Structures are given as C-alpha cells and as structure tokens.
Computed example of a mutant assay.
Amino acid sequence: MSLPIVIADDSLLARKVLTKALPPDWDVDVSYASSGREALGLYREGRASVMFLDLTMPDMTGYQVLEALQHEDLNTFVIVVSADVQPMAQSRVRSLGAAAFLAKPVTPEALLHTLKEYGLYA
C-alpha cells in the first residue's frame, strides 16, 4: 500500500522540484497543497502520513500548520522544506514538532539521506 504524503508549498515550481527529488521507486501517493490550510485539510482526510511543509505560504504559514498539528495532537511526520535556513527558524520548527529540516532547493541526495535517516525509505 502506498504511503500517503503531502507536499505543501505555495510555489508550483517548488512542488515540482520536490516531487522530482523523491526516490523514483518510493511507493507513495502524493497530494499537493498550495496553502497551510489546504495541507491541514489533506491531513484530516488521511492523506498525510508524511508532510513536506514550506514555511512561507499565504493563508496559513508552515509555523501555523505545525502549531495546529501540535495543538490538536495530530500525528504526521513533518519535514520542513524552506529557504529560511536561519538557525532560529530550524530551532523553532523542531520545537513545534517537525522531525527534519531541508534547505531549498532540495536535492535528491539530501532528501534520500533524510528519508533513510528516519526510516521512511529503505
């Protein structure tokens, strides 16, 4: 059975780049969100065992999504993908429950390393 994942980013280009970086043989069912609110909706539909989350989005930021997940005790594996690589941003997302942080643009190598590190890909 495919692993349901969500790629949440308001940039179509960023969503495409991340999709192309996924391991080609990783058995996943990908859903896309262009806002934080949409990402939460997909999670609530059971479509986000893993969520790739941008921090800067309209309507609801990645930080707000993480806060909602934490506040509502929702359980998904969140990998933040952001161009904001400041140590403060990385520390903040980890304190809000994100498991990992990847800098944009994501490379297939960096993504594969993270997926293997957390047991999401063998």
Rank of each mutant, 00 (worst) to 15 (best):
M1Q: 14
L3H: 00
L3Y: 01
I5C: 10
I5F: 12
I7H: 02
D10T: 13
D10A: 10
S11C: 08
L13R: 12
L13E: 15
K16E: 15
V17H: 14
L18M: 07
K20W: 11
L22P: 05
P23E: 10
P24D: 06
P24F: 08
W26M: 13
D27T: 12
D29I: 05
V30G: 14
A33T: 13
S34I: 15
S35L: 14
R37V: 15
E38L: 13
A39Q: 05
E45S: 02
G46F: 06
G46K: 04
R47M: 00
A48P: 05
A48F: 05
F52K: 10
L53D: 03
D54K: 03
L55Y: 01
L55G: 03
P58S: 07
G62E: 00
G62Q: 01
Q64K: 08
L66T: 07
E67Y: 10
A68S: 10
L69E: 08
L69M: 14
L69R: 11
L74C: 14
L74K: 10
T76V: 11
V80M: 06
V81S: 01
A83L: 02
D84S: 06
D84H: 05
V85P: 06
V85K: 09
Q86L: 11
P87I: 08
P87L: 07
M88A: 10
A89K: 01
S91Q: 11
S91N: 10
V93G: 10
R94G: 04
R94K: 11
S95P: 06
S95R: 12
G97S: 05
G97Q: 02
A103P: 03
A103E: 03
K104N: 03
K104R: 02
K104T: 00
P105C: 08
V106I: 02
P108R: 08
E109T: 02
T114K: 01
T114L: 05
T114V: 04
Y118P: 03
Y118E: 03
Y118K: 04
G119P: 01
G119S: 01
L120G: 06
Y121Q: 03
A122K: 07
